[in-house]
């Protein structure tokens, strides 16, 4: 184990780690927004809207995220979309994340006891009011943990942008493996940094989950 080398390259990895964090945060935000939209679509009254929501989930969960990234980044210009690698990474992974989060959010909403909805409607609340004041508050509590699982997967998925040359952790690892021929050391540095990011995120999710349960 070449510790001296590891010390030398560490600053580069640290810088790359911030890019990974930035990617994770942005894709998570985009994913949550699309997830909320997708879940509403799947629960819509209109069959066409429901179908579009289901199609979104099916297509983006049913094909590799890497391919989705390539279509956006490499194929985008052909249909008038010019993005740099970072932008393509955030948007591509964000859309992909949104498909998984759609199902998570929808799952939490569906899990709310039907009796609640019946009681609310019986009292005179509209569909929208029922959703806003009865279902969603409860569903929010349920979805935190499973969304945490999605976010965890998201953080690891950011590694894919290495394939389109975004200088994040995995790209940096590959670069230094290529120049130093020390794959174990580079894996270790990158791996530990990923695990730290994931751990901190996990703690944040747990904290949020606890807060939600108390209220």
């Amino acid at each position: 184990m070449d510790f001296e080398l590891m010390q030398k390259v560490f600053p580069f990895f640290l810088e790359a780690a911030w890019i990974t964090v930035l990617l994770s945060v942005l894709t998570t935000i985009l994913g949550l927004i699309l997830g909320a939209v997708g879940a509403s679509a799947r629960l819509s009254r209109f069959a066409l809207v429901r179908f579009l929501g289901a199609a979104y989930v099916s297509v983006f969960r049913g094909t590799p995220a890497l391919i989705q990234l390539f279509i956006l980044y490499f194929g985008g210009p052909q249909i008038g979309i010019q993005l740099d690698a970072f932008q393509a990474g955030v948007i591509g992974l964000g859309i992909n994340a949104g498909a998984y989060m759609t199902e998570t959010i929808r799952g939490a909403i569906i899990a709310i006891d039907k009796g609640q909805i019946e009681a609310a409607r019986t009292v005179g609340l509209s569909r929208f009011q029922t959703m806003r004041y009865v279902v969603l508050p409860q569903a929010m509590r349920l979805m935190i943990r499973p969304l945490g699982v999605n976010i965890n997967a998201m953080i690891k998925a950011t590694a894919l942008v290495a394939a389109i040359s975004v200088v994040e952790l995995t790209y940096t690892a590959q670069r230094f493996i290529g120049s130093t021929y020390k794959p174990f050391e580079m894996f270790l540095i990158a791996g530990v940094l990923y695990m730290i990011i994931i751990y901190i995120t996990g703690q944040a999710v747990s904290w949020l989950d606890r807060k939600a349960r108390i209220s």
């Binding site: 690891k156 894919l160 995995t170 690892a173 493996i177 174990f184 791996g191 990923y194 695990m195 994931i198």
Partner: peptide
Amino acid sequence: FLFMGTPLLLQLFLIYFGLVQ
């Protein structure tokens, strides 16, 4: 623990280049 907390792509690099090593 290590394998569940790191990206697959990174692991592929490790295994491919590591085995050569």
